[in-house]
């Protein structure tokens, strides 16, 4: 009975590790914040989920022990990791982190220029002030 648990656990955890490796490679290779967050959130979430499900099934099949904590962890990671990526991307866009070269269209740009003009101007002013201060310090 413990043999099948070993097999299921090994396969799922190996798949999870491979997907996490792909996610890490994507983090290194992709050009800008948004595509990197695309690689980091989706595939690493799937990798963690595969690893956790493999652990859960291993303990269920080989020991007969059903871990509620692992179920809770699976639900929690599945729920929060995409939201974390969303919040990071949003913060990056609001601080006008540039998109990758060769981006065809930016549909959010018009919306932000219309609705959050004041906010953008404020951040621009702040950036200009900081630059001026830096220049002053340099000249002094």
């Amino acid at each position: 009975m413990s043999g099948s648990g070993d097999v299921v656990g090994v396969i799922l955890i190996l798949i999870g590790a491979a997907i996490s490796l792909i996610s890490a490679i994507g983090n290194v290779r992709l050009p800008d914040v948004y595509t990197r967050s695309h690689a980091a959130s989706k595939s690493s979430t799937l990798g963690v989920l595969c690893t956790l499900v493999g652990t859960l099934l291993y303990f269920v099949i080989s020991d007969g022990y059903f871990s509620i904590r692992l179920i809770l962890g699976i639900v929690f990671v599945f729920l929060t990791a995409p939201v974390a990526a969303h919040v990071i991307c949003r913060a990056a866009y609001r601080h006008q982190v540039p998109l990758a070269e060769g981006t065809a269209q930016d549909e959010l740009k018009d919306y932000y220029m219309e609705n959050e003009n004041i906010d953008n101007k404020n951040t621009d002013n702040k950036a200009n002030l900081i630059e001026k201060e830096v220049k002053l310090q340099v000249t002094e």
Binding site: R69, L72, V75, F76, L79, T80, V83, H86, V87, R90, E116, I118, D119
Partner: peptide, 23 residues
């Protein structure tokens, strides 16, 4: 300006319950 972080708020409602139960 009114922040529209609907996704963060609605996920926080669920996640806070899970975290409190787990604690």
């Amino acid at each position: 300006m009114k922040p529209n972080d609907v996704i963060l708020r609605s996920v926080t409602r669920v996640a806070a319950v899970i975290i409190l139960t787990f604690s």
